[in-house]
Design a protein around this nucleic acid. Structure first.
Lengths: 159, 159
DNA sequence: GGGTGAATGTTATAATGTTGCAAATCTTCA
DNA sequence: TGAAGATTTGCAACATTATAACATTCACCC
C-alpha cells in the first residue's frame, strides 16, 4: 500500500486484500481479539473491491460460499470489525468498506463516486482540524465524525 | 433567528417555527413550488423541536392529527422539502431536521448531541473549504457533502 | 475433562424506505 | 367555462436494512 494506491487506478488488488488481511491479523493478535474464520471471511469479502458493500451483499456472498448464514451473523462480524477499526460504515449508503488506515487513530473523509461507486478514504488532517475547531467554537465535544462526499471520481468525471 | 439562537438554549421556539414556516412559504413562492398543506404540516412537525425526527415519527404525528397517512405520503413530503432546501437528512440517524439556512447555498456541518439528541447546524466555511481542497487534491468533483459530528453538547457535557 | 465466557445458529420481528397504479386536484388555455 | 394535461395524493403491497431473544456450540484454562 502506501504512496497513492488510488483505488480507481488499476493496481494489484490481490495484494491489496492480502495486505489488509495480514494487517488485520496483526492488529487482532496485538489486541488479543479473535479474528475467527467468519470474521476474516467477511473482511476478505469487503476487500474484494473498493466499493462499499451492504450487509445483505455480504450475506449473499457468504451464501455463495455455501455458508448458510442469517443476518445476525453478518452484523455481528461487522460490529467486531468496526470495533477494531478494520472497516468503516458509510452512513449515506448503509454500506461497509475496508479501512485503509487500520491501526492509526484518524478521522476519515470518504470520496464516494456516484458513477462507479468506488470510495476513497482520506486521512485529511486539515479537515479534521477544521471540524475540531468548529466544534470547539460551540463548546461541543466530538466523539465520532462522519464525513462523506458524494460526487464524481477522476475516472468518471467527463465534463 | 440570527445571532446565535442556539437550539439547546431556552428560546422562544414558537417564533423559531413561525420564522421557518414564513421563510418556507416565501421560498416556495419564489420558486413557483407548491407548499401544500401536507408538506407544510410535515415541515411544521419537523420544526417542533431541534432534534432530528424519523420518517415514521412524522407518520405517527400525522396520525395523531387524524391524518391517516401511509409511508409514501411522508417520504414524498420529505423529498419535496429536501429538494427545496427546507430540511436536511441526517444520514447517521436516518432522520430529518429543519434547515436553518434555507435559501442560502451552503455545506452544513451538524453537531449532534448523543445525550439530548439536539442537532445544531453550522455553516462552517473553514470546514467546507478544507473539504473542497481535499477533494480537489484527488481530482474529485464533489456534488453532495455529508458532515455529521456526534458527541456531547455544552449542556450535556459533564466531565 | 468439566466449567466458563465468547461466538455462532436460528427464528422471528422491528425499522426504514420504495414501487406501481388509481383517484383526486390543480393549472392552463382555447 | 370546461376539458386536456400535469401534479399531487391515497393506497396496497413489497423491498431493504437492522435487531431481539434464546438455544447451541466452541475455545480456552485450569
Amino acid at each position: 500500500m502506501s504512496a497513492k494506491a488510488l483505488p480507481y487506478r488499476p493496481h494489484n488488488h490481490a495484494a491489496c486484500v492480502q495486505h489488509a488481511l495480514a494487517e488485520a491479523r496483526a492488529i487482532c493478535k496485538a489486541q488479543n481479539a479473535r479474528l475467527t474464520p467468519t470474521r476474516e471471511r467477511v473482511l476478505e469479502l469487503i476487500w474484494q473491491s473498493h466499493k462499499p458493500l451492504g450487509a445483505y451483499d455480504l450475506l449473499a456472498a457468504l451464501a455463495d460460499d455455501g455458508h448458510n448464514a442469517a443476518p445476525p451473523t453478518v452484523y455481528r462480524a461487522l460490529d467486531f470489525l468496526l470495533q477494531h477499526g478494520l472497516v468503516h460504515r458509510i452512513a449515506s449508503l448503509n454500506a461497509f468498506i475496508g479501512c485503509t488506515h487500520a491501526g492509526e487513530h484518524h478521522t476519515s473523509v470518504f470520496l464516494i463516486c456516484r458513477s462507479c461507486r468506488t470510495a476513497l478514504e482520506l486521512a485529511a488532517p486539515a479537515v479534521s482540524e477544521a471540524v475540531c475547531q468548529a466544534a470547539e467554537a460551540e463548546a461541543f465535544t466530538p466523539e465520532d465524525t462522519t464525513i462523506e462526499i458524494a460526487g464524481q471520481c477522476p475516472n468518471c468525471c467527463h465534463d
